[in-house]
Design a protein around this nucleic acid. Structure first.
Length: 242
DNA sequence: GTGAATGTTAACAG
DNA sequence: CCTGTTAACATTCA
């Protein structure tokens, strides 16, 4: 469920709680419910992070791999966090909920969020240039560089720009790197559009696919890089820079 | 029933 | 101290 675009959908679905007062807070996550009650919230996102901001306390909800949420619909499972407002209730399940002690600007580089219009291409390129030995498959999953990118976006972007996941950053031509960075935000918004329309899977070209749609030969499925996360790629049309 | 998956972090070993 | 490995968490689907 949760790559950056899915968190944008969450933010949009909870838009009507923005500025509203928390009238009830509960759940099994270790957070100070008393500090939350009575506070007005502002809901923000940074990549895969969903941020519940109040004057007294900021919460970070991360859905990890299996997390889920619901609005106004109580489920059987024990919620990690429940926030009640006068106009509805927000539930989070099986996720990580953390109280942030630092101010948001100390923790988050807003220009790294691929779902933000503040995303800074030149800054991302500069970060990539700093670690020439890093493989591009690992770099795309680095949340400090591409906040919000997950394993699906990784494989799809690399396929779109004809780049092998095991390419070394330092060996990739700068214009290819720039194209990749730009394509990351383009694909992230395609992901968002397709996810909303319920046609995300249908539009995958590489992720979880058996055959290269361009070359019509079998795609490679391999756990790549330090992250050992699976990548789907075509050995024929995706260039490997080593 | 089994295993793997859109993720991250803490604990531990060397 | 730094790096790499493993485990843990928890849900759904093929």
């Amino acid at each position: 469920m949760p790559e950056g675009p899915s968190i944008i959908i969450l933010k949009e679905l909870t838009r009507h709680f923005n500025g509203k007062k928390i009238i009830g807070a509960s759940g099994v996550a270790k957070v100070d419910h008393d500090l939350l009650i009575g506070q007005n919230v502002r809901l923000k996102t940074w990549g895969k992070h969903f941020l519940i901001c109040t004057k007294k306390l900021n919460l970070r909800v991360h859905l990890l791999l299996f997390g889920s949420y619901s609005v106004d619909e109580k489920r059987r499972a024990k919620p990690k966090l429940v926030l009640e407002f006068s106009n509805g209730t927000l539930y989070f399940y099986a996720c990580s909920v953390v109280e942030l002690s630092e101010s948001l600007n100390e923790i988050y580089d807003w220009e790294a969020d691929v779902m933000s219009d503040k995303f800074n291409v030149a800054k991302a390129r500069k970060k990539l240039k700093e670690t020439p030995d890093t493989l591009v498959c690992d770099a795309l999953l680095d949340q400090q560089i591409f906040s919000g990118v997950g394993n699906i976006i990784k494989s799809e972007v690399l396929f779109r720009v004809y780049l092998h996941p095991e390419s070394k950053l330092g060996k990739i031509p700068t214009r290819t790197l720039t194209k990749m960075i730009k394509e990351t935000t383009v694909y992230a918004y395609d992901f968002l559009k397709w996810k909303k329309a319920g046609v995300l899977k249908k539009n995958w070209e590489a992720y979880a696919k058996k055959k290269c749609p361009r070359c019509d030969i079998p795609l490679i499925k391999k756990n790549t890089g330090k992250t050992r996360r699976r990548s789907f790629f075509c050995n024929n049309c995706q260039s490997k820079f080593v």
